[in-house]
């Protein structure tokens, strides 16, 4: 399944992203980075039900004013701290929403700012193994 966000869902993603990552003098606002075009890198590999649920939610967020999204995020985060089954749906929501935003954001340009440049020396590796198999 290849997921592509429509304009309402893209709007929802960027509104939610700006609430969670508003940016500052060093790090850019979420919505300035064009992550709506990268969302498939996460959504395509989620269980179908989870991906469709997130898409639906992003569409709803696209209709809400930002201050309501702030309230929503605040509430979900607080409720996710309730132990046991009562807090379970909020934890699922929190992991889903925060996971989507953080995953997209920290896959791009901000990595340079925070100083994450992992390196593995492969200068001596000459195509070590064939991918062919019976």
């Amino acid at each position: 399944m290849i997921y592509k966000l429509n304009s309402l869902q893209s709007k929802g993603l960027n509104k939610l992203g700006d609430v969670m990552i508003p940016g500052d003098q060093d790090l850019p606002r979420f919505s300035t980075q064009g992550y709506e075009h990268q969302a498939y890198r996460v959504l395509d590999y989620l269980p179908t039900q989870d991906a469709q649920g997130l898409m639906l939610l992003l569409g709803v967020l696209g209709l809400l004013p930002s201050f309501l999204i702030v309230c929503l995020v605040f509430m979900i985060e607080k409720m996710s701290r309730i132990r046991g089954m009562l807090g379970a749906p909020f934890r699922v929501l929190w992991i889903g929403l925060k996971g989507l935003i953080m995953t997209l954001y920290y896959s791009g340009a901000p990595l340079d700012v925070i100083g994450f440049k992992p390196f593995v020396y492969t200068g001596d590796v000459i195509s070590p193994h064939s991918s062919q198999h019976p």
Binding site: Q38, L46, L104
Partner: peptide, 23 residues
């Protein structure tokens, strides 16, 4: 190679699976 693609493509559940109370 990248964390985003590794997490999505090389783990069950697209990265994570939760227990019933999501704790």
């Amino acid at each position: 190679g990248t964390e985003i693609d590794t997490t999505a493509q090389m783990f069950w559940g697209g990265g994570i699976e939760l227990n019933s109370d999501a704790s």
